[in-house]
Design a protein around this nucleic acid. Structure first.
Lengths: 249, 249
DNA sequence: CGGGATGTTCCGTCATGCGGAACCGTACCG
DNA sequence: CGGTACGGTTCCGCATGACGGAACATCCCG
């Protein structure tokens, strides 16, 4: 026994319950444990608030204590912790929400987002999700760095994707062609209703374009009047510094 | 031993770590356990993803598995589960976010909120927080139901609250006085920048005004053009039906 | 280099957790 | 109404899993 049996079993039970409330017998079946063992462990977990009895004799579900403890979990190390200080500073300097996505094949994966502003109107948190690259500003910024061949390959594969609205490949080519030498993408509600955004790509250790930083916010308050040039400069410089940091590692 | 010692100790350790990353010796001190016991339990928790080692020899923190499990925790029963179908229907019928607050002394406590729309621009989730009643639409709707004496007492106590901006008691009295017989409060960005809201109070089992339902959203899209009267009617009727439901119980 | 602090591993010991059986409560059916 | 089936709880003898002190390894500092 290398671990602690009770803890292994307790987490087994919690994972079974993560899919939805269940009774003791069903939990025992799925966790492959005797009912008396399950009953005892559920009582212990209930005492800690980790499970709750839905109603007397009616089943158990995951308890609020795990939500509380889970709220304090640490973000994992790696790229996210390297990039985090950059996006925290961008958010602080501009009042927008700042974050980054990374390229995963033909999609952009939303890794992190910071929005410390105390305004009520905010953007929904989209971290942990993937999007076709041409559908979000930071993905588009990476797309604009594709070679001509890679871009055509992407357009061909996206053309066949069932995406509801058919893809206007020529229009997408034109928009990619209009992105400037610095690679910065400025969106004035072009990607999402009511949202302005600025995005810039950054390089990974091997020099390839791996991700893009962005700043965004509701268009009635972001960027502030006359502030767009400053915001563009901040994102562009942050992406450049981040690239230098990652290439050097 | 009524519970399971290992589980009690494991959660002890997790609660110590919820305040921030710590080393084995420090955890042993705070949890009042031998270091070897802590080390073994940490290894078991790490195997489940419930803790993560920050760096080799450098300390431990709460792991992402708890966030995952915590995300599946069940909302508690009680008032919230009674009200939930009402606010789900309000959100579904209008595209706004719907929820309710309850009176707690001089504050309004934000109990629940539903926002199933797929728009990007949303309102921040404020459940679990308390606000002075006059500062949010649903709190204001409850305030408008105060007796004259109770209102004056509230105004007197709020006048002395250190709130930054001094309270304009006369203006607040006038606004309370303008609330119609049906008790519905309509806000066009009066409480929060960029937010429209409609709120109506509801009664508890003893007939007292215990809470208020609301609908709200970013003002560029909520309510939809020409839809305000329908929204007001929906909220008002829902609050009335809810009152009848609670008084009958 | 020696001392101090931290974290890990070992292993003899025994208290704890295990699980089968019995029991209880509820619902259903003939 | 009585019998059956099912789900959940409690009991208790027992085997083993968890315990914790000691020893060890590593790192840092004066």
């Amino acid at each position: 026994m290398s671990g602690v049996q009770s803890i292994e079993r307790a987490f087994s039970i919690l994972r079974v319950l993560a899919r939805g409330p269940l009774g003791v017998t069903e939990i025992a079946d799925r966790a492959e444990l005797p009912k008396s063992t399950v009953s005892r462990l559920l009582n212990a977990l209930e005492a800690e608030g980790a499970v709750e009895q839905v109603e007397a004799g009616g089943g158990y579900s995951v308890g609020s204590a795990l939500a509380t403890l889970g709220a304090s979990s640490n973000p994992s190390a790696g790229l996210r912790s390297v990039v985090r200080p950059f996006i925290e500073e961008l958010a602080m300097l501009t009042g927008g929400s700042a974050g980054f996505t990374i390229r995963e094949g033909d999609t952009a994966y939303w890794v992190d987002d910071v929005d410390d502003g105390d305004e009520l109107v905010k953007l929904a948190d989209q971290t942990g999700q993937s999007f076709a690259m041409h559908t979000i500003p930071s993905g588009f910024a990476m797309l604009a760095r594709f070679s001509t061949d890679a871009l055509e390959e992407y357009l061909a594969s996206e053309r066949v994707s069932a995406d509801g609205e058919p893809l206007d490949v020529d229009e997408l080519r034109r928009r990619v062609g209009r992105v400037g030498f610095d690679g910065v993408v400025v969106s004035r509600e072009e990607f999402d209703a009511g949202v302005n955004a600025v995005a810039a790509p950054f390089r990974g250790p091997d020099g390839e374009w791996v991700g893009a930083l962005y700043l965004q916010g509701p268009s009635f308050r972001f960027p502030e009047d006359g502030d767009e040039r400053r915001v563009v400069k901040l994102v562009s410089e942050a992406a450049m510094q981040l690239s230098e940091r990652l290439v050097a590692s």
